[in-house]
Structure formats: structure tokens, C-alpha cells
Amino acid sequence: MQSVKINELRPTQMTHGLREIHQKTTEYQSLSGHTLDMAIAEKPIPVVIGPNAASFAIDHHHVATALWRAGIKAVPTVLVADLSSLAQDEFWLTLENHRWTYPYDVKGRRVSFTAMPEHVWELADDEYRSLAASVRDAGGYEKTTVPLEEFRWADLFRSNLPYPTSDAEFESLVKKAVKLAKSTVAIGLPGYVGPAEQKRQE
């Protein structure tokens, strides 16, 4: 496990959920000493080495951003692959083939890999990405190891629910999103639990 400076960590996605980041930042700021060190060590950032030996995060962008906001300068990383010998275009296509990148903006539109932000904290805020995390925490679906699962759920909510413009609207939307996540509309998405689970919880 190697430590990498957060300001040198390159993102592989365009968006993140600020609500989720704010929550994680508050949690990290409440810790100190050995307890903080342990919390940081629990979630090393999986990275792929790209052109010019740069470290690209392929997951845990929220963790890295929250730690940066909490004043942490470096994070432990786990090397997934070394693709430093590839040219830029070939590198990004390889990431996409492995589902290690998500080049879509806050409206779900495909963007060029050259538009990818330079730093993890520069990603655009996507309320639907935060909604996906809140729905999972509320039991709307189960966490899986499927790559980019949160984005697939975010896209479902983006296509079916209005964009929240306030905290109150967001909280109200979580309840609707949980119901949607357990409906037949969501069949096939990773972590789907279905209406039977919903009835048991009710």
C-alpha cells in the first residue's frame, strides 16, 4: 500500500454528490489521532497508473474529496493496474473497457475524456448521485461490488424524479426514490431488493 498526495490524485469521473461528501467530511473532522488514522486506512483508494506515471483513482472519489476537505494531505492507495505505457487515448479506452471510468456529466450526457477534471475535489455536484447514496443507506437497494453501481441508480432517479432545489425537497425525494428503487422499474440494477423486501420492512 502506497501513500499518494490527494492533490496529485486524478479523477476518472465527472461528478460526485456533495451531500455525501459533506457528511463524510464531518465524520473525519470529528476524529483525531489513532482513530482518524484507522478510519483513513480502512478505505484505501484503488488507483491505476496512467501516462506520465500519474495516479488515477477508479473508486472512492468521495472519500478522497472528504479527506481533502478535512485537511488531510495524502491517502493510502492500492494499485490495481499499471497502464503507464499506454498513450492517452488508449489509456482511457482501457479504463472504459474495464468500467473504471464514468465520462458523463450531471445531466447524464457523454463528455470527452479530455474534459475530465484534474483534481478529485473539482468534480461537479450531482444531487442524483447523493440521492443514490441516501437511498442505499435507507435500504432501497443493497451495496454490491458491481463497478459504478451508484451511477446506474442515479441515472434511474434522474430519469424518473424531479431535481431537488432545497434540503426539504431532497429529503422528500429520498422516500419517493426508495419506493421507485423497490419497484419493477429498477429490476436488473445491481443490489435490487424488490417489492417483497419492501413489504417485509413495512
Results as ranks from 00 to 15, higher is better:
Asn7Ala: 08
Pro51Arg: 10
Ala39Met: 07
Pro11Tyr: 02
Ala39Leu: 04
Gln29Pro: 04
Ala39Asp: 04
Gly50Cys: 05
Thr12Val: 02
Asn97Glu: 15
Ser30Met: 04
Ser84Gln: 08
Thr94Asn: 09
Pro11Asp: 02
Lys5Leu: 11
Ala64Arg: 01
Met14Leu: 04
His16Phe: 07
Met38Pro: 01
Ala81Leu: 12
Lys73Ile: 07
Trp100Thr: 13
Ala70Val: 00
Pro46Thr: 05
Thr94Pro: 11
Asn97Tyr: 13
Leu93Ala: 10
Ile72Asn: 04
Gln88Val: 12
Leu86Tyr: 14
Val48Ser: 00
Pro44Cys: 02
Arg109Lys: 14
Lys107Asn: 09
Glu8Asp: 15
His61Lys: 02
Ser55Arg: 10
Ala64Leu: 03
Ala53Pro: 00
Tyr104Met: 04
Ala74Val: 03
His61Trp: 09
Asp59Gly: 07
Arg110Phe: 11
Trp100Val: 13
Lys5Cys: 12
Gln29Leu: 01
Thr12Lys: 01
His22Thr: 15
Leu86Trp: 07
Ser84Val: 07
Val106Leu: 02
Val80Trp: 11
Arg69Pro: 03
Val78Cys: 10
Ile45Arg: 08
His61Cys: 09
Val47Gln: 03
Lys24Tyr: 06
Lys43His: 13
Thr35Glu: 10
Ile21Trp: 01
Met14Ile: 00
Gln29Lys: 09
Leu9Tyr: 07
Asp82Ala: 15
Leu83Ser: 11
Thr101Pro: 09
Ile49Glu: 05
Gly71Leu: 04
Pro44Tyr: 01
Val80Glu: 14
Tyr102Gln: 15
Gly17Trp: 05
Glu27Val: 09
Arg110Trp: 12
Gln88Ala: 12
Trp68Tyr: 13
Tyr28Asn: 06
Gly17Thr: 03
His60Tyr: 15
His16Asn: 06
Gly17Tyr: 03
Leu83Thr: 12
Asp59Asn: 09
Ser84Met: 07
Leu86Cys: 07
Leu36Gln: 01
Leu67Ala: 04
Leu18His: 08
Gln88Leu: 10
Val80Phe: 11
Leu86His: 06
Val75Pro: 06
Ser84Trp: 01
Ala41Pro: 07
Pro51Gln: 13
Asp105Cys: 00
His16Cys: 06
Arg109Trp: 06
Ala39Phe: 03
Arg19Pro: 11
Thr77Met: 06
Thr15Gly: 02
His16Pro: 02
His22Arg: 15
Ile40Ala: 03
Ser30Pro: 05
Gly17His: 03
Gln23Asn: 12
Asn7His: 10
Trp92Val: 08
Asp37Gln: 15
Leu31Thr: 03
Thr12Arg: 00
Leu67Gly: 03
Ala70Leu: 05
Glu90Gln: 09
Pro11Lys: 00
Thr15Gln: 01
Asp82Gln: 09
Leu83Ala: 14
Glu8Gln: 15
Thr15His: 04
Glu8Phe: 09
Trp68Arg: 11
Pro76Asp: 14
Ile49Lys: 13
Lys73Glu: 08
Ile49Tyr: 06
Ile45Tyr: 04
Arg19Phe: 11
Ala41Arg: 13
Asp37Val: 10
Ile45Cys: 05
His34Cys: 05
His22Pro: 00
Glu27Met: 14
Asp59Val: 10
His60Asn: 13
His60Arg: 15
Ala70Thr: 02
Asp89Arg: 14
Asn52Leu: 15
Trp68Asn: 05
His61Asp: 07
Tyr28Gln: 05
Val111Trp: 10
Ser32Cys: 00
Ile21Lys: 01
Ala39His: 08
Met38Glu: 12
Glu96Ile: 14
Ala66Lys: 11
Ala81Ser: 14
Asp89Tyr: 07
Ile45Ala: 09
Phe91Ser: 06
Trp100Ser: 12
Pro76Trp: 07
